[in-house]
Structures are given as structure tokens and as C-alpha cells.
């Protein structure tokens, strides 16, 4: 037990160091690359004195080191500063937008795992039939198309030619009024508000498909490979002699040994998926942190960009931690280590 505790503490310390590194890099980079947030704000005809005054107001007149020190102290006290473009507290903005992205990303992940798992299992079942190459080809095609192309294709098919799904946004204004949290989908599921569930889901379907399809294809490919490798082992032969059907052999015998490498890879790919939310949220005008990140960069909104990058960094670290735990949970040989 103390060993587990030690390793947990170790991970937390490592996470803190990583986040600090992310903070330094982003902070310095944003101030070294060209582009001045003040230049975005000044009205035409401002005098140099007015500009200097404004620069001082935002604390942008000190050295990078002193700016960083001020920012770091504030962050440790929970103050992420005020967004320059939106004139609102950064932490509040993040708290509003992050749940939207989390719901989207997790929904895409669940969809990808279910679809990818199903393709892998069916692919293993139809091994050596004419269906196997068909399935492999379909899967390869899904894999080859990137998320933003899926997004555009989905919009033209299900948004324009057959307008079945809403093109943009997260929830229709006619539904949205009295949510307690910003986890709209989870909240409406918990409170069983059917109309809200339907509306939010229909807004999420296309972005979820766009984000989830490529990941599903990756999962399918890796899991099928691992399943086929497991299916030639002697323990499968023995289980087959016990009279297990092919489906049972996969589900009860092979899957638990094939799932480890797939979980590890899915974790890595999930961080890419979160990166993908930036462009996909933009395309669907979905109000998450990815969409907000693009605006923040365009507006040179330094406090907001810094806050967003820290949130993305923390997410990646948490995902990796979760993946390590899951991999250990699926592999009895790692459980005691």
C-alpha cells in the first residue's frame, strides 16, 4: 500500500512540474512572438501616452520575468486574471466553456470505443470470409479521413442536403434557460428533461461523429490486431474444446488480453481528439474551450490563452494518469507492481 501511495505522490509531483513547464513555455512564447494585445485595443488616434497608460493598466509594461512572477502568484491563489477581449474573469470563462468541451470529447470517446470495439470484434468473427476485406477497407477509409473533413462532409450531408441536425451551437435558445451547471447534457440526463436531452444530443451528433470516427477506426485496427494475436494462443484452443462459441471466445477469453495495448493507445489518441476539438468546435460553432481558444489567439488575449493552455495541459496529464491506471487494471501482472 505505501508503495502505491508513493507512486501516486510521485505522479502528482511530476504533474506539477510538467504544468509549470507548460506555463513557462506558453508565457514566454506569447510575449516573444510578434503581435501586441494593446495594438488590438487602442482606438485610432491614440497618443503614445495613452498607449503607455493602457499597457501599464494591463501590467504589460514590466519585464517578462516580473510579469511571470505576478501571474504565477495570482494563479496559485486561484486568480487567472481578466480576459482582455471579453473583459471577464478567465476562471469563470473556463468554468463555463470547459464542461461543453468535456461532454463533447467524452461522448466522442464513448462513441469511438463502442464503434471501434464492435468493428474489431466483428472483424475477428468474420475472419477468412469475404466480409473481412470489406470491413478492413471501410475501416481504412474512416481512418484516412481527418476530423475536420468529416465535419465538413457531415455538415453538407446532414445539415444542408438533408437538414436533420442543427448546424451549430450547443443547445437551442428555446430550451436553454435554467441549467444549474454547465454540464448541460449530464444535467438534463440526471433530471430526465427529455426535450433538453433530445435537443442537446442532436447538436452533439455531428461534432461527435467528426471527432469520434477517426478514433474509432484506430481502435478497431489495433484491437483487431491484438484479438487475432490472442486467438491463436493455446488457451483459446482449450476454451474452444470446452465448447465456447467464437463470440464467447472473443468476449470471455481473448478480449481481456487484447485490451491492454488498445487502452494505452486510445489514451494517447484521446489527447489528440481533445486537440481536434479546437477545429471541430470552430466548424460547428460549438461553445467549448477549443472554439474559445481560436478567438483568444486571434485577439491576442494573453490571460485567456494562458488559462486555456493550462487547462489543456492539465487535461492531458489527467488522461495519461487515467490510462496508466486503466492499463494496470486490465493486466493482472501489473496490478501488484
Amino acid at each position: 500500500m505505501p508503495l502505491i501511495l508513493l507512486s501516486a505522490l510521485n505522479r502528482i509531483a511530476l504533474a506539477a512540474v510538467t504544468l509549470f513547464g507548460v506555463a513557462v513555455v506558453v508565457f514566454v512564447l506569447l510575449r516573444v512572438v510578434p503581435g501586441d494585445p494593446i495594438a488590438m485595443m487602442i482606438s485610432p488616434g491614440s497618443t503614445p501616452e495613452q498607449i503607455a497608460q493602457m499597457r501599464a493598466n494591463y501590467g504589460l509594461d514590466g519585464s517578462i520575468l516580473s510579469q511571470f512572477w505576478i501571474w504565477l502568484k495570482a494563479i496559485l491563489l486561484g486568480d487567472f486574471g481578466t480576459s482582455i477581449s471579453l473583459r471577464r474573469n478567465v476562471l469563470e470563462l473556463l468554468a463555463e466553456r470547459l464542461p461543453a468541451t468535456l461532454e463533447l470529447a467524452v461522448a466522442a470517446l464513448v462513441f469511438a470505443v463502442l464503434l471501434g470495439g464492435a468493428i474489431a470484434i466483428i472483424g475477428t468473427l468474420v475472419r477468412r470470409t469475404f466480409l473481412e476485406p470489406v470491413l478492413d477497407t471501410v475501416n481504412g477509409t474512416i481512418l484516412a479521413v481527418p476530423d475536420f473533413v468529416w465535419a465538413l462532409a457531415l455538415i453538407s450531408v446532414f445539415g444542408v442536403f438533408f437538414p436533420v441536425f442543427p448546424l451549430s451551437g450547443r443547445v437551442d435558445p428555446s430550451v436553454q434557460n435554467d441549467f444549474f451547471t454547465y454540464f448541460y447534457l449530464i444535467e438534463s440526463l440526471l433530471t430526465l428533461r427529455l426535450s433538453a436531452i433530445v435537443d442537446i444530443s442532436s447538436h452533439m451528433i455531428m461534432p461527435v461523429l467528426a471527432l469520434g470516427l477517426p478514433l474509432a477506426a484506430i481502435i478497431a485496427r489495433v484491437l483487431k490486431e491484438a484479438l487475432l494475436e490472442a486467438m491463436v494462443q493455446d488457451y483459446i484452443l482449450l476454451a474452444k474444446l470446452k465448447g465456447k462459441s467464437n463470440l464467447r471466445l472473443i468476449m470471455q477469453e481473448a478480449l481481456r488480453n487484447a485490451i491492454g495495448p488498445t487502452v494505452a493507445l486510445t489514451g494517447v489518441q484521446f489527447t489528440f481528439l481533445i486537440g481536434g476539438t479546437v477545429i471541430v468546435e470552430r466548424i460547428f460553432a460549438y461553445p467549448g474551450i477549443g472554439n474559445m481558444a481560436i478567438d483568444a489567439v486571434i485577439n491576442r488575449d494573453l490571460p485567456l490563452i494562458q488559462g486555456l493552455v493550462l487547462v489543456f495541459g492539465a487535461l492531458f496529464i489527467l488522461i495519461n494518469l487515467g490510462v496508466d491506471l486503466l492499463v494496470a487494471a486490465f493486466n493482472p501482472r501489473l496490478r501488484h507492481a
Binding site: Y235, L238, E253, N257, F330, R333
Partner: peptide, 8 residues
């Protein structure tokens, strides 16, 4: 070594 399922 290989005739028992390592995961069960």
C-alpha cells in the same frame, strides 16, 4: 505457459 489465459 500459453495454455492458461493470463487474464483470468
Amino acid at each position: 505457459q500459453t495454455a492458461l489465459n493470463p487474464g483470468r
